[in-house]
Amino acid sequence: MHDRFEILIAIHIVIGAFFVFVGSFGLVKLPSLMSRLHGPSKATTLGVGGCLIASMLHFGALEGRVSIQEMLITFFLFITAPVTAHFIAKAHLHAEVDPESELPPDEGRYGWSTFATMPEVRMASRESRSASGDRLES
């Protein structure tokens, strides 16, 4: 029983560490920032998840009860890794990318939101209402 757990834990540690390594290797090798975003946000998150599953199994075999705290870290990483990737991509688009030449055209009229915004619909202000003689219906 203990041997089976040992092999399972060892496999998860090796796979997790391998994916962490591959994710960071992508940071070194890939040519542009946008392609470098793919490595950390996916492979590293999955690698840390693998190490956390190994930790859950290890402490489950050791103490006989399931500890859920590692699932919390995995859950948090899976939710926040896409958000940070999106934010870094937006900041890069704002600083370095020219929307006319490199991005595909947006089908709507207003363009991509990092470069252009929709004109806001404003509620009728008090001055314009009283000037035109409208009254609030009671």
Binding site: S41, I79, A81, V83, K90, L93, G108, W112, S113
Partner: peptide
């Protein structure tokens, strides 16, 4: 957006100003 970013090969980068189109970078 979170699903597109988590599945490998694609990273969602931007949303159009009227919210009808998503800009995705594919590896």
């Amino acid at each position: 957006t979170a699903t597109i970013t988590l599945t490998p090969g694609t990273v969602a980068s931007d949303l159009s100003a009227d919210g009808r189109t998503l800009l995705v970078h594919c590896l």
